[in-house]
């Protein structure tokens, strides 16, 4: 039996962002931008709470959750008490701290990240069902969103060999 040595490099990725926490949206953006940087065709699809990542009046004030987040740590590495997370301003403070740490690593803001992706030829879409649910229209979304599409249209975008779908 001959060994299979041929490699099939990834040609296209479809990435779904379904959550609106800062870190989830950033994860989707890093993966999409990373694909574009590698010369891989990339489509980023926002659905449900992920839509916050491309909703004009929310996209640059995303927060990280301080309640129900067991991986959360105090700056020194000690566990972060859940009850602290419910205090007014704590979530905003923690989110601001996350953002400053992220900025130090030269990771751009959400809008700038999306601009980098589209500048490299990546495309951004919104989910129709979720937009209907949250009563969002095209004009509520970031200007460069390519369209509001159905799940069927999303799968059509996946055509071709070497495509992977990634859910964040």
């Amino acid at each position: 039996m001959s060994e299979i040595t041929e490699k099939y490099p990834l040609k296209k990725v479809l990435i779904i962002c379904a959550k609106g926490n800062l870190e989830d949206v950033l994860a989707a953006l890093v993966m999409t931008n990373g694909a574009v940087m590698e010369g891989i065709e990339a489509k980023l699809f926002f659905t449900f709470f992920g839509l916050d990542g491309i909703t004009k009046n929310r996209m640059n004030s995303l927060h990280t959750a301080t309640v129900g987040n067991p991986a959360m740590r105090m700056p020194g590495g000690l566990p972060f008490p859940s009850l602290l997370g419910i205090l007014p301003g704590v979530e905003a403070g923690v989110s601001a701290m996350m953002k400053s740490q992220i900025n130090k690593l030269d990771i751009p803001t959400v809008t700038e990240f999306l601009e980098m992706i589209t500048a490299g030829g990546g495309e951004v879409f919104a989910c129709k069902l979720a937009c209907d649910m949250f009563k969002l229209k095209k004009e509520d979304l970031w200007e460069e969103v390519s369209g509001i599409i159905t799940v069927g249209q999303f799968y059509e975008l996946a055509e071709g060999h070497g495509t992977q779908i990634i859910f964040v």
Binding site: D106, M116, A119, G120
Partner: peptide, 20 residues
């Protein structure tokens, strides 16, 4: 320094689209 696409985009030489 670590090279990033963003650094190239803010270099004043090219924007990110031109870089691509």
């Amino acid at each position: 320094q670590q090279l990033t696409i963003r650094k190239v985009g803010t270099s004043g030489i090219v924007d990110i689209k031109e870089f691509y």
